[in-house]
């Protein structure tokens, strides 16, 4: 087996600075390799550069210095349009604040992830339904987000993230707005998805969530360190 073929993404000496004044170095010389089906957690206090790290991995931001390759492709020379396509195809996002559209049903919200991703129209509903089954939310398909509990909202958001069948799930404080009971549910869901072969990177404050990951990283002042 060729180990390189298994590499999903690789950061090499990645730094990101925001021009000041004062100039802020949010990410310093980060190295990270994530293989397919990996389960990674990143912990750190506020302002440690977690969000910058996540934006970087999600192709929502570009490194100032260093190299980021995703699925064997160097992302630096990609134009915005191609980065967007790569992001839509490869990466699913789960946010702390869910980002569900309030005036669309749960099913519509899930289907939203497929309208930009090249899924033929006829298949979208079916795949959205399948994704809702994965998170046990089919009974809420016609509901509007406002009528759901926090846990249900996050499950709907997870269904949206996986409906487009990405290879990497980026979860940004997925349990930040949830109580401990529902946090457990969400955690189980992430583990289940990971076991089904999806690479998961979760950024969190919660040590319990972080501990569930196969590999754990700590961020402080823009530096990424693996916790061994």
């Amino acid at each position: 087996m060729n180990p390189e073929a298994d590499v999903l993404l690789r950061l090499e000496g990645v730094s990101r600075s925001f021009p000041g004044p004062p100039e802020v170095l949010a990410l310093r010389d980060a190295d990270l390799t994530v293989v397919r089906g990996d389960y990674v957690s990143i912990m750190g206090p506020s302002g440690s550069g977690k969000s910058t790290m996540l934006n970087m991995l999600g192709l929502l931001d570009r490194p100032t210095v260093g190299r980021y390759s995703l699925a064997g492709q160097d992302t630096a020379p990609l134009k915005d349009r191609d980065r967007t396509r790569l992001r839509g195809r490869m990466i699913g996002f789960v946010f702390q604040s869910f980002h569900l559209l309030a005036r669309r049903s749960v099913l519509d919200n899930v289907m939203l992830s497929m309208i930009y991703g090249g899924v033929p129209k006829a298949q979208r509903r079916q795949r959205a339904w399948g994704a809702l089954e994965q998170v046990s939310m089919t009974h809420r398909a016609a509901f509007y987000p406002g009528t759901l509990s926090g846990g249900e909202r996050q499950r709907a958001a997870i269904a949206r993230a996986v409906a487009s069948e990405p290879e990497l799930l980026l979860a940004d404080e997925p349990t930040g707005n949830l109580d401990s009971g529902t946090s457990g549910e969400v955690l189980e869901m992430l583990e289940g998805l990971n076991q089904a072969g999806l690479a998961v990177i979760v950024v969190t404050h919660d040590p319990e969530i972080a501990a569930a990951a196969r590999r754990r990283f700590q961020m402080r002042d823009g530096r990424l360190k693996e916790v061994l």
């Binding site: 929502l60 349009r81 967007t84 992001r87 996002f93 946010f95 559209l101 939203l112 992830s113």
Partner: peptide, 16 residues
């Protein structure tokens, strides 16, 4: 803005 950010994350181009 949130919706716009979300759509961009889901693969919407600037043009879309």
């Amino acid at each position: 803005r949130g919706e716009i950010g979300l759509r961009r994350a889901l693969g919407a181009t600037r043009l879309s």
